[in-house]
Design a protein around this nucleic acid. Structure first.
Lengths: 182, 182
DNA sequence: TGCAAAACGGAGAGTGTCTCCGTATAGTTC
DNA sequence: GAACTATACGGAGACACTCTCCGTTTTGCA
């Protein structure tokens, strides 16, 4: 990639991250991002063919954080329920940073053609590691994709309605108890 | 209302219902509905100032069905878990009829200014009746709004990803067990 | 039949995503 | 360092969508 192209790409992603964080995915227009990064729309669209692919680039660090959160929860010296709740709470907390991310990633689960397919894979894998780590504490037959959908769905609701932390916590407690062996 | 206005309104709602069912909320344009109902865009927008208000009219029968489903579930001669699962399953099943409805209604929960505010109220009230009906079988402190969000969130995921019935059932089982007293 | 109020409907404003293509520039070769 | 070519730039604009304004038509009533 040419040096000027790299510079522009970096600036676009940086500007887009700022805008998306401040206003959420829907409220940011591509023109706005282009103007903010001081490039033309053509340049923007050559680097990122769709708005979602731009969002995917912005969320690059997100996948890493998901993995770190699972590791942290599993490494706690606590009950299975507590470790599970820690992970669920951490995941929900990641939403305050990127409004709309949970809904988009959850919607893309199981769609290999989505721009978020890579994010979905790391997310589902994280839940698989959670299942392996908590071992027999979970109800039998529970699958990583299932947890991903459950948690993603809750997270999307919490994000969308901008629920206070305690409302989110009580919903997550229900999900956690449902996931633990009866 | 003048007779021609009533005729047009009825035809608009009927056409819109067909289109929304076939393609989902987002994939239907207002122009399309106007053309289908053989009216101009101006007429369409006088009857329904926003696209969401049109959807609200289309979902008119939805609220009644929600209430009927709760009544049916509560009147069953079965365990609390079974009655709860019946209601959850029924609710999820209502989505095959109106793609996108669950997500929109769930997103509008707690927003009195939404065009779906009336639908939200009946939906939350239905869950309150469920709580009253199942009485002490549910975990203490559970609220109608909380159930509405949980079930709505799950339903939205199921709808969005067009999950097969057994996947939905296993997710709902998790939610149901989480809602029942530990 | 005549009339006022109500409803109609099309042109178009405003906003969004995304494309085409002529122009400018970076990086390489002599 | 000059010429050249592949690459990148960026703006005009195509297209789609929601929603509005306002001149025209229709309805229901006296």
């Amino acid at each position: 990639m040419r040096a000027d192209a790299q510079r522009n790409r970096d600036r676009i992603v940086e500007v887009a991250r700022t805008f998306f964080r401040a206003k959420g995915f829907d409220a940011v227009s591509m023109d706005e991002v282009a103007k903010g990064a001081e490039v033309g729309p053509g340049t923007l669209y050559r680097h990122f063919p769709t708005k979602e692919s731009l969002y995917d680039a912005v969320l690059e660090a997100w996948a890493g954080k998901v993995n770190a959160a699972v590791d942290r929860a599993l490494s706690l010296d606590a009950s299975a329920r507590e470790r599970l709740l820690t992970w669920l709470t951490d995941y929900a907390a990641m939403l305050t940073e990127h409004k709309g991310a949970a809904a988009r990633i959850t919607a893309a689960l199981g769609d290999p053609g989505s721009p978020f397919a890579a994010k979905c894979t790391t997310y589902v894998n994280a839940n698989q590691r959670l299942i392996d780590g908590l071992d027999s504490a979970l109800r039998p037959g529970v699958e990583a994709m299932q947890i991903s959908r459950l948690v993603g769905g809750m997270a999307a609701v919490a994000d969308n309605s901008e629920l206070p932390a305690e409302s989110v916590a009580s919903m997550l407690a229900v999900v956690a108890d449902g996931l633990l062996a009866p």
